[in-house]
Nucleic acid binder design. Structure first.
Lengths: 327, 327
DNA sequence: GCCCACTATGACAACGTTGTCCCCCAGCGG
DNA sequence: CCGCTGGGGGACAACGTTGTCATAGTGGGC
């Protein structure tokens, strides 16, 4: 800006006026300034601007588990979309379920003075955010609640979903329904396990410890688990999968197996309807989740200071016929 | 920082020293400062720091087509990964194939003084980046080349891939091979069309205009196209799909159809192997693409100023048996 | 007791902007 | 000719840091 001013033979303040379309600059001066800007390839430094104006940095921080997972990339897309409408950029990072990494990312974003934070919690401790929140940075937790702070949260109906999954299977005559879930210290995994248990009880088929296998899972652990479930005295005839990754592992493990158990997966995924058999899922909308959370965040930025809200988005069972019938 | 200094009864410089772990602060003073920092929930302002130090902002800008597309979210993940290792945050945005939006995003990132830019070009004009590049911001183009500037570029072997796809189908006896590609003004779409044409010529089956349908495509246009291809006097017996979205549209359109043409899709996708029939694809690695581009970017940041490079990543045909055999 | 080296600390400028205030000067009415 | 007005423009401070340099005190060697 200094260089531009020198080249145009004016003061930097005048350049600033031109750049900001402020009135009170003679057209011919403005033209000279614009020419200089063009010639030097000047672009105003947004950091300096925001620093000086003490205004918003125009950024939103997004901490999620893994952008590579289609579910979270759907969330990211929705967040980006709304942020764009409100003139914000999104800075994002993946925690990989590591609470330390989550914290590191969140605090880094705070140091960058993001206008707000969207967090898919990896850990259970979020008191590290209290100073920031007190200082006025709105924080919305996504998909999972915060461990030890009260804040806006957007969840999906994990319990209701798994209850429905079990009910669905039981209504087709299944009595031995297994549950493969993620690591039990993950909120959603635990909730879904609770839903599974409740569903079993409600359906009158009882809860049997040996039908449950919590993760962390990988392809081979799923394979082993399925073998165990199959070789029991009373084998499982149906499976509820705790998330999209586990569903895929199960599908891989079952490929080519003649006697397939019925399967209902939590999280919808692309092509689920084109597999044979198509996969029944408990669907919830990644972009709805992202949108709800971002809307909440912007409401806070717009001055809403009502008590923290907890939004629970509905899920719906999408029956596609993955083996339920021939139980 | 001012407040911290006042509370601790020291100068702001001393606070700065403590925050930056600089030597020459008496332990007891440091302790007082740390206590004040803790009490006030102080977090240093990274923008101000970077402004003052004139150093890197520790950010990388990533402009892609759509984070929601699994291919690009794979790229994003890889970029993030490497950026993390090098202590950078990623700011990303989706252009949706809109050149204006691409430009807007890229320039916004420049205003934020990103250390480098990774761009999946939506348009053909990138001279708007020349001032930035001359000012020292490294730019790497990803997946598609820049229109009118010379810069580092990482591509995949689009032509080789489609040639191989056609060759593969022809070797199974197909002579009427169709091509459904994206809008022809998209570089990759055009390249793949060229590959298709070349493959046809090489295979001695000739290039027939009526077997080609370039996009933009949606589910219904694909459906219509397939009907047209099927009801020709000499129907197409095989299809090459120009990208993962089109492949999925085709799969949807073909669901339940008895006489399916053979299919080879460009871009691998999850579950392709579990469909029936499994889908043969030309695979290339999103994360390899992201990694190669980011590595190139960091090489530039490390001072490499050799002439711009163009890296072409290999693709490989993954035969899965999507109908090639019963031609 | 004197000087030196060294430690601990602070004052001040500067990074690139913008907000505030002030100045210069042309034009105009009296 | 004076004073006023208003448009065009500049000087300067400040945003929150950090780099540079200065300074006060302290202890040791002579």
């Amino acid at each position: 800006m200094n260089d531009v001013a020198r080249l145009a033979g004016v003061s930097i303040k005048t350049v600033s006026r031109v750049v900001n379309d402020e009135p009170g600059v003679h057209p011919s001066t403005a033209e000279r300034v614009l020419a200089a800007i063009d010639q030097l390839g000047f672009r105003r430094n947004l950091s300096a601007r925001n620093l000086r104006r003490g205004s918003s940095t125009g950024t939103i921080g997004l901490v999620l588990e893994d952008v590579g997972n289609p579910f979270y990339s759907g969330v990211t897309r929705a967040v980006e979309e709304i942020a764009r409408l409100r003139g914000r950029q999104v800075i994002s990072g993946s925690s990989d379920e590591d609470p330390g990494r989550e914290r590191e990312l969140a605090l880094e974003f705070c140091s960058r003075r993001v206008d707000g934070l969207l967090i898919v919690p990896a850990g259970l401790q979020h008191s590290y955010l209290v100073p920031e929140m007190r200082a006025g940075t709105p924080v919305v937790f996504l998909d999972r609640p915060a461990g030890d702070v009260v804040a806006d949260t957007v969840l999906v109906d994990n319990i209701g979903g798994t209850v429905e999954a079990v009910t669905h299977l039981a209504s087709h005559g299944h009595r031995r329904i297994a549950f493969l879930g993620d690591a039990p210290d993950i909120f959603t995994a635990n909730e879904r396990l609770r839903g599974y248990r409740e569903g079993c009880v409600r359906a009158g088929i009882g809860y049997h410890e040996e039908l449950v296998a919590m993760g962390p899972h990988d392809e081979s652990s799923v394979r082993t688990t399925l073998q165990r479930l199959h070789s029991m005295r009373e084998p499982a005839t149906a499976i509820v999968a705790g998330n999209n990754r586990i569903t895929v592992y199960i599908l891989r493990a079952l490929a080519g197996v003649a006697e397939r158990p019925a399967l209902v997966g939590f999280d919808d995924f692309e092509l689920a309807d084109l597999l044979s058999p198509p996969v029944t899922v408990i669907a919830h909308d990644a972009s709805a989740l992202g949108k709800a959370a971002t809307d909440l965040l912007f409401a806070r930025l717009d001055g809403d200071n009502s008590p923290p809200r907890r939004v629970v988005l509905p899920v719906r069972l999408v029956p596609r016929g993955s083996g339920e019938v021939h139980a």
